[in-house]
Nucleic acid binder design. Structure first.
Lengths: 330, 330
DNA sequence: CTGAAAGCGCTTACAG
DNA sequence: CTGAAAGCGCTTACAG
């Protein structure tokens, strides 16, 4: 613990005004060579670090990007967070990670908090439909992940969920599956509805009956997995909602003696690091996690710099990564 | 996007001074009933939210706790982060998650950044020994996780690593293992050295030869796992460094046709949510993740309130959670 | 109980 | 090129 030097201490030591010190630090105006030298020495001697709070009060920007997620324990979202943080840091921004705990009140509280802190933007994966009012009233740019482009958001970044659903389904069909069940996410999100559409289209094109059941995003889906096996006893392929749920689903299949991929094949979704560390390694639809996070951060950083959003709707491509939970015959 | 009301707008509308509005908001002094009413109405009408930046400039506190971790992808640390965030939020604090990427420069940059933001404290899992200088010069309380109580930290919170190492070893011995290998973490951390001591003591008491090899904290330890099997072909029990590394280790055992728990038993470490979702469910040493995070946050919050740290050294108890990667004979 | 004033620590027109 | 002054939006002694 020690007392911090202020700009006035530096000014006094260097024999100049605070304004001059500020100019040297920010490079906002020419300062005579000699004074620059004295100021730099004084900064060195005092260990002066500008108070960012005072600076943001004037600048009306705190170089903070808020990232609001329903759960910090969702690895996919955390991996996106890592990319946001990385892009932010490279540009002199910080990221505040806000865990809404799937609690609408906490989401609102965080939006207000970030506004009150002069944050420069918000990246959000909301699980709350009644946030419209808050977002409309929010003076900051709000970038949504995993949403259809609604007028209330400044921009939307997501991956191509339709193709993802399609790709996974076509792969299972290619593997010989004929009774494919989709574990369907909430249809109010594009991740849920678009994947479903991709799945249905692929099924129809191959003369296969689409089968599905509702599922939650939580990591532990053992209960609904058991339910699935009961409702669809002939299932030979399952599209999971995420890699984490695939892991939990696999556990149930194993317990019930259903061999993967011999009896039932599984395709996960997201492509988190874990997917390849599972035993067996998971076949999964890989979202461009790094790009999603970076782009979301970049949109906000550019908006601050240029005053306008460069691209409102952003859909990034997905790909299929084959592991050991599916097998192509022959 | 819309313009924000300021305290002066509220004051004008209510026909009082800014000081009075401030008093009503903060409850710092008595205000006549009638003016309170008018102020409240004006706040409602204008949608006024106090600017936290201006407030923190005066108060020299931004109600922010910084949490610096080597990697946001370390699930154990993220679960602790969830607890910190929760405790923080309940007390009107925010948490800034700082991902140091195992980069010492980034750690220093974040410490400076948090200082410049008037953060109220820092919780850190540093992987950098040369941080002493920065921490000594840091005007904020710094709570370390996973460190021996060094004089440079304001406080330390960790779980009982010695007992953890012991507990896991005794369990494997009880399960009949006689060639137990410890995947040993960096000895500069108490998590590494204390667990090792517990392991060695337990081995010695049972007349078993301690065996170990160095390992990293990264999730993917497949390479060192293969190395382990080569160096210790008779191994019948392995203490992993974490649950994540146990998962990766299991993958290698499976690939090499070593049956778990029949041929080799595994004990993980941490007790993250994932440990029970693995197939087979992992036997692991459970750290009190929730308590660790909450306590670390509480120490900082209390320090702000009372001006002093309530407890400098904090060691929390661990427990063993049995899964399917070990089996007690008979 | 209440307002005018000073101050938190910076930055930037403004005037020279 | 440079300093005195005003201002960012609050809070709190101070005086009444």
């Amino acid at each position: 613990m020690m007392i911090l030097a202020q700009i006035s201490d530096v000014a006094r030591l260097a024999g100049v005004s605070s304004a001059t010190v500020s100019r040297v630090i920010n490079g906002t105006a020419r300062v005579s060579e000699e004074k620059v030298k004295r100021v730099l020495e004084a900064i060195e001697a005092t260990g002066f670090k500008p108070n960012e709070i005072a600076r943001s009060l004037y600048k009306k920007s705190s170089k903070i990007i808020g990232y609001i997620v329903p759960s910090i324990l969702n690895v996919f979202l955390t991996e996106i967070g890592r990319a946001i943080e990385d892009e932010a840091f490279q540009n002199g921004y910080k990221m505040i990670l806000c865990n809404s705990d799937e609690n609408p009140k906490k989401e609102v509280a965080y939006i207000n908090m970030l506004t009150a802190m002069n944050a420069d933007g918000i990246i959000i994966t909301a699980n709350n439909d009644n946030l419209d009012e808050e977002i409309r009233n929010c003076p900051l740019p709000v970038v949504a992940l995993d949403k259809d482009a609604g007028s209330r958001y400044t921009a939307v970044v997501q991956s191509d969920n339709y193709s993802g659903g399609r790709l996974a389904t076509e792969h299972l069909i290619e593997c010989g599956c004929r009774h494919i069940v989709l574990m369907r996410g909430p249809q109010k999100y594009s991740s849920g509805s678009q994947r479903f559409l991709g799945y249905v289209d692929a099924c129809n094109e191959h003369g296969i009956q689409p089968l599905f059941m509702e599922s939650q995003y939580s990591a532990d889906v053992r209960e609904s997995s058991r339910e699935l096996l009961k409702r669809f006893p002939h299932v030979d392929g399952i599209l999971a909602l995420s890699d984490m749920t695939a892991m939990s689903l696999y556990k149930v299949l194993f317990e019930q003696g259903r061999k993967v991929p011999d009896d039932i094949m599984i395709v996960g979704y997201d492509g988190i690091e874990l997917s390849s560390l599972m035993t067996p390694a998971l076949t999964t639809v890989v979202q461009p996690i790094e790009e999603i996070g970076r782009l979301a951060a970049k949109l906000i950083i550019d908006q601050v710099a240029n005053g306008k959003i460069s691209s409102r709707e952003n859909v990034l491509p997905v790909s299929l990564q084959m592991g050991q939970t599916t097998r192509i015959p022959g």
